[in-house]
Amino acid sequence: MTLALDIDKLTCVRAHRVLFEALSLVLTAGAFVSLQGPNGAGKTSLLRIIAGFLTPAAGIVRIRTETGAILTDGEDRARAVGWLGHQDAVKLQLTVGEQLSFWSKLYGDGAAALAPFGLAPLAEVPGQFLSAGQKRRLALARLTLTKRKLWLLDEPLAALDAAGKVLVAQSVRAHCAAGGIAIAATHEPLGVDGLTLHLGGP
């Protein structure tokens, strides 16, 4: 079995406003979707619905895992997605090494790889001394260590320099090539081939 995501007639209402209505989308292993649209168009809401945080007003989200299990319940989907929020979830008082070791224990997915993200020299450095770009790298390293196959990325390029952006694109490309799926809400193009989904607007 290969990974698949099936979004079926999804409707999202926030504060009495319909953000999107009857949105349907089927993605299979290797797919990349760039979510675009103005602020407040529902990009983050869509990601949060897929991850099971938010309950849609109508519609169903199904994830078919590589073992063939169909996950429709929000709590089950939550255990299947890899999340990169627009905040970095970096603790100022903990070192880079401590943070990665904590998250790998919490997710129970073995040791974290520091090297590909240029974090090896920073292992002993507390979060408060990291630059915005370094914090993002830490968040990316954490995302890869979770071994989750469906990536949901909220503004992954924010606060990154050119080298960092290349790194994100490379990670996403590698992830999709390995049979994963990635959906990214972005303002600027990620530089990865795939679909573009426009939310909101006229």
Binding site: R79, Q87, L106
Partner: peptide, 16 residues
């Protein structure tokens, strides 16, 4: 604190 910096999201998605 964990809510504001996004850590709580990641905890909610963890196997715990």
């Amino acid at each position: 604190a964990d809510f504001e910096d996004g850590s709580l999201d990641l905890m909610a998605l963890s196997p715990l």
